[in-house]
Simulated assay, not measured.
Amino acid sequence: MCEACNQKAEILTREGESRRSFLGGTAAMATAPLAAAALSSEAKAQEAASPLGASNVQSWAAFDTSGSFAPHTIPRRAAGPKDVVVEILYSSICHSDIHTYKGDWGMPTFPLVPGHEMVGRVTGVGAEVTKFREGDIAGVGTMVDSCGECANCLADREQNCLNGTTFTYNSPDKISGGVTYGGYSKKIVVKEDFALRIPPGVDLAGFAPLLCAGITTFSPLNHWDLQPGQRYGVIGMGGLGHLAVKLAAAKGAEVVVFTTSKDKLEDAKSFGASEAYLWSDEDAMRRQMGSFDLMLSTVPVAYPMQPFLNMLKLDKTLVNVGALFPIEGAHGMMMGFGRQSLAGSMTGGIAETQRVIDFAAHHGIAATYEMITPDQIGAACEKVVRKQARYRYVIDMTKA
């Protein structure tokens, strides 16, 4: 428990004196069992009635690698002085959720409650919270805690915390014990430092995917400093890729999409791409050689990357944010002659995530999505795997 929580817990008697001092006195020693019972009963009553109290929450969980989701009750901790309680309205499906329950990155802890793209209404705030008030709209993304003290945290890169980031689900829970549970649920309790402000007037369901897909595709634009007029290639146009197109087009880049789905060619142009090509179009692929200032791969599985590396100008970079597996088909000699770079990136820090939210609100950008209800999660995940999503599935948690 943090120091602030200890301090607050010391003021528990009706007379306002320290509980520790009260229980240390002679009279208190004689009546300690009765006092403790009364305090325990009162605390439980207050906890049950308070929006800040611990609670059991409805969620939808995977119980094995098959992806069959079912209702499941999970515990949410009582809110501390710096916590906010968020009633989740919308939570979207990320391909990372699917990789996790399938065990692609190592066997998860079941029951697993995924979800790291969520938007909801603040229903409770701790006594020391300054960023939110009850009734505000907040978002929660890929992480819920970090040490806050290491060099990376101090540089607003909490996702790279040197002492271990706490991710939103299937991560060791340093506060409550066990593992963290994500946004396929009715409520979450999170430190205010890891909650994002959602501007008024936006499409809340369309903003949920910005909490992962948005920041994951926005962060490389900042780090590799994409400039207006530069040529930017987006490889794969699914949940991440379609937001990559929208965000880069809003920055004034010349966006070119490469997809394996013919029906996405026109979609790409409607999202802001100036050109779109099928991977199977060999002539078009050949014409792109040495023409890009920056490329982004959003494809969630490994594939030969050298044909796309060949499209980079001298000293330029292809950034992989999709396939979190061993990279295939990058040829050292060819990369050397072109002095091309193959880089990796992931989610951004909290400050940068707030930046993409504000950028999207300013430019009228939101995810393109299909709304589903919680009982459709399993089927929707399978459609994502089969590349049938257009382009994000958002779960309406108000239908839980």
Rank of each mutant, 00 (worst) to 15 (best):
Ala250Leu: 08
Trp105His: 06
Gly67Met: 14
Tyr90Pro: 08
Ser96Lys: 02
Ile372Trp: 09
Ala38Asp: 09
Thr259Ser: 15
Arg355Leu: 09
Ala276Thr: 10
Ile188Cys: 03
Asn222Pro: 00
Asp83Gln: 07
Pro71Val: 01
Ala213Val: 02
Gly139Gln: 05
Lys131Val: 04
Pro114Lys: 04
Gly141His: 05
Lys313Pro: 01
Leu247Cys: 12
Cys147Asp: 12
Ala253Met: 08
Gly241Met: 00
Thr165Leu: 03
Tyr391Arg: 04
Leu296Trp: 01
Tyr169Pro: 04
Phe194His: 04
Ala276Ile: 09
Gly332Ile: 12
Thr109Ser: 13
Ile327Lys: 02
Gln376Arg: 14
Gly177Glu: 09
Arg121Met: 02
Lys44Asn: 14
Tyr184Gly: 00
Glu254Asn: 13
Ile395Asp: 05
Leu196Thr: 07
Gly241Ser: 02
Gly344Tyr: 03
Tyr90Asp: 08
Ser59Lys: 03
Val85Ala: 11
Pro307Phe: 12
Val319Leu: 06
Glu15Lys: 15
Ile137Arg: 13
Thr260Lys: 11
Ser171Val: 06
Leu278Lys: 02
Phe207Leu: 09
Asp64Glu: 05
Gln288His: 13
Asp136Ala: 12
Val113Tyr: 03
Thr26Ile: 11
Tyr303Asp: 03
Gln354His: 12
Pro114His: 03
Lys131Met: 06
Thr13Arg: 15
Gly126Met: 00
Met335Ser: 11
Gly25Ile: 00
Cys212Gln: 02
Phe325Lys: 06
Met1Asp: 05
Ser41Glu: 08
Ser18Glu: 10
Arg20Lys: 15
Met289Phe: 13
Ala389Met: 12
Leu12Phe: 13
Thr373Phe: 04
Arg286Thr: 10
Val356Arg: 10
Ser96Leu: 06
Gly178Leu: 10
Ile377Tyr: 04
Ser68His: 10
Cys94Met: 08
Tyr391Val: 02
Arg339Pro: 00
His95Ala: 05
Val190Glu: 04
Val301Leu: 12
Gly53Cys: 05
Thr168Tyr: 11
Asn320Thr: 06
Gln306Trp: 06
His72Asn: 11
Thr73Lys: 15
Glu117Phe: 05
Arg197Val: 15
Ala61Cys: 08
Arg133Pro: 00
